Structures are given as C-alpha cells and as structure tokens.
Computed example of a mutant assay.
Amino acid sequence: MQMILFKMNHQNYLISADAVEEVIDTIRITKVPLAPHWIEGLINLRGTVLTVVNLSRLIGVPTTEINRNILIMKQNEEKKGLLIEEVVEVVDIEAGDIQLMDEEGYDEYYSGIVSFPDKVANVIQVNHMIFE
C-alpha cells in the first residue's frame, strides 16, 4: 500500500495515500473565531472553502513555526485540509511491515509503527476524528 511519509516536530509519520486526495503548499489560512484549538482556519482551494485542521494540535505534539504542506483529505464527498510540517516522500509499505500497537493505553489516532533502515515512523489514522 502507498503511504505518505511526512515530518512534524522532527518526528516521522505515515498516513495512507488512499485518504489523501492531494498535497498542496501551504496557502493563506483565515482564522475562525471560537473554533476548537485544533482548527487552524479556512482556505479557498480553487473556489472551494475547506476547513484546515492543525494535525500537531489535534494529536497533541508540539507545534512548529513552519508548516509547508496541507494534505487535502477526502471521505466520501467531503474534503478537509490537514496542516503538516513537510511531506518527505510517498513510500510503498507492506501490511506486514506495520507493527501494530496494543489497544490499551494507546491513542485513538496511532495504529502502529514502521521501521525503516534509518528512521521509525508512526502510522496515523485521523479521518474518524476530522470527519465527525
């Protein structure tokens, strides 16, 4: 399966490429008053207004000053942006390469880890959280 490898706060993460429609460079984000702390704001993507979720705030990791990319996530006909620090590459992962985490005491957005020769990446699934 194809997964997108990206960085946030010097940590590596993987997300299924099936859930991502496209990757764009960060564009101007308009703040939304009284929105939850993990909502970064709204963007206008080719005439469509999308909500942008700050992934680091959503999963509780320290935020960074520079966020270079937005993952345009899709679920059915709905789309939302996921603000991340930087996409590294698209990688092919075998299902057996994912070391699953035990359910007890693990957060609802981490589903496992993948070890590479030079790094380790957390596998995350956030569609169930951003498309409520």
Rank of each mutant, 00 (worst) to 15 (best):
Q2K: 15
L5R: 05
F6R: 00
K7Y: 08
M8T: 11
N9P: 06
H10E: 14
H10Y: 12
Q11R: 11
Y13S: 00
S16C: 08
A17V: 09
A19N: 08
A19F: 08
V20H: 09
E22P: 04
E22G: 04
V23T: 15
I24W: 06
D25Y: 13
D25I: 12
D25A: 08
D25V: 10
R28C: 08
I29Y: 03
T30R: 07
T30S: 14
P36L: 10
W38Y: 15
I39K: 01
E40W: 05
G41D: 02
I43D: 00
N44L: 13
N44K: 14
N44Y: 07
N44C: 08
G47E: 06
G47F: 08
G47W: 09
L50I: 11
V52F: 06
V53R: 01
N54E: 14
N54S: 09
I59K: 02
G60I: 11
G60Q: 09
T63P: 04
T64S: 05
E65R: 12
E65M: 09
E65D: 12
I66N: 05
I66Q: 07
N67F: 02
M73K: 02
K74I: 14
K74M: 10
Q75F: 13
Q75P: 04
N76I: 12
N76V: 12
N76D: 15
G81I: 10
L82Y: 04
I84K: 00
I84A: 00
E85C: 02
E86T: 13
V90K: 12
D92Y: 04
E94T: 15
I98P: 02
I98E: 05
Q99W: 03
Q99V: 15
M101V: 15
E104Y: 06
E104A: 08
Y106N: 10
D107L: 05
D107K: 08
E108S: 05
S111A: 02
G112M: 01
I113S: 02
V114N: 01
V114I: 09
V114Y: 02
S115D: 13
P117I: 13
V120S: 03
V120C: 03
I124L: 09
Q125I: 07
Q125L: 08
V126W: 06
V126Q: 01
M129A: 08
M129H: 11
F131C: 04
F131Q: 02
E132F: 09
E132S: 10
